[in-house]
Structure formats: structure tokens, C-alpha cells
Simulated assay, not measured.
Amino acid sequence: MPRRPASPCRARLCGNLTRERHGYCEEHADLAKPWTRGRGGRGRGGRPWRRLRRQVLERDQYLCQRCRRAGRAAEASEVDHIVPTAEGGATAGHNLEALCGPCHKAKTLEEAQRARQRGG
């Protein structure tokens, strides 16, 4: 079987050549990530998340909880963490709430701004 042609290492500023499938030379082989499916075992996705999402929407009666607290009524289309996972929140029913699209977008922007202020 013919050998694989040599190609430049995928590591930034590395001039070495490699024949490895992952594209990294021996020096940078630790940068190669194993192939993972979907989200790599983290976060949401799949049947368990869909079930939990449906349970939260039913519990909150398909109403945006932020709008409800402000005295308005809006149909919820998203389910979001009350305490973000990046801040130590769990992906469990007690830490999830139903939100409408605009509230979800505003909340995500607030969280991103907080993360930038924290420096992470």
C-alpha cells in the first residue's frame, strides 16, 4: 500500500511535515482530538433534553416566566438555565425556565456581558 503523502503540521507556526491522519506531527500529536459525535457528551441534545424541555414548558404552562414576572403574557419558545452552567448551574428542572425569544436573547446578552466583565 502506498504511503500517505507528507503534509504540513496543523499546529500554528509549525514547519514539520507529517503523514498522520490527524494532521499533526509527533511533537504536536497531543493536539489531535479524538472524533466525537454531536456535542461530545456535553450540553443539551437528544431525547433526554427534549423530554426535560417538554416537562419544563408544561410546568410553566408554555408562558415566558420573565414576562410573567413583569406582568405580561407571552408564549414561551425557549427553555433556559436560571443559573447558567458556566456559573455552576445544573441542567435540572429546578434550574430551568421557559422564556420567549426576545427574553432569551436579552438574558443571553446579559450573561455574556457578565462573563466578559469577569474575564472568562
Results as ranks from 00 to 15, higher is better:
R114W: 07
K33N: 10
E97R: 01
D60W: 03
A73W: 03
P102G: 07
N95R: 09
R114G: 02
A106W: 14
L109A: 04
R51L: 10
R66I: 08
E87V: 09
R44F: 13
R68C: 02
L96A: 00
Y62Q: 11
Q65E: 06
D30Y: 07
R47H: 07
E58L: 04
C103K: 00
G23Y: 04
P102E: 09
H94M: 02
R4F: 00
R3N: 15
G120P: 04
G45Y: 04
E111R: 11
G43Y: 07
K107T: 01
R118N: 11
Q113T: 12
L13D: 13
E87M: 11
R69A: 11
W35T: 06
A32C: 01
W49F: 10
C14S: 03
N95W: 02
G89C: 11
G23K: 03
P84E: 14
G43C: 05
E27R: 12
Q55D: 15
C64P: 00
C9W: 00
L99I: 07
L99F: 02
E75V: 15
K107Q: 03
Q113L: 10
C100T: 08
C100Y: 01
A86R: 08
E110A: 14
V79W: 01
V56E: 00
Y62H: 14
A115N: 14
R68S: 01
R53H: 09
G93E: 09
Q61T: 13
A11F: 00
G71L: 02
L13P: 02
E58D: 12
A86H: 10
Q117P: 06
R53F: 06
A76L: 07
T108F: 00
G45M: 08
T91N: 05
R72K: 14
C9G: 05
Q65T: 12
Q117K: 12
K107S: 06
H81P: 03
S77G: 08
P5K: 13
H22V: 12
L109V: 14
W35K: 05
R114Y: 04
A11C: 05
R50N: 15
R54V: 05
W35M: 02
L57A: 06
C14P: 05
N95S: 00
C64K: 00
G88F: 06
K33H: 09
T85W: 15
A6V: 10
A6K: 14
D30V: 11
R51D: 09
A73E: 14
A29F: 10
C14N: 05
R114Q: 14
C100G: 02
R47G: 03
P102D: 12
D80I: 15
A92Y: 00
M1C: 10
T18V: 04
P5L: 13
R116Y: 08
E20Y: 03
G23H: 07
G15F: 00
R3W: 12
A112E: 14
S7F: 06
D80W: 15
G46N: 14
G45P: 11
E58F: 02
G40W: 09
P8H: 10
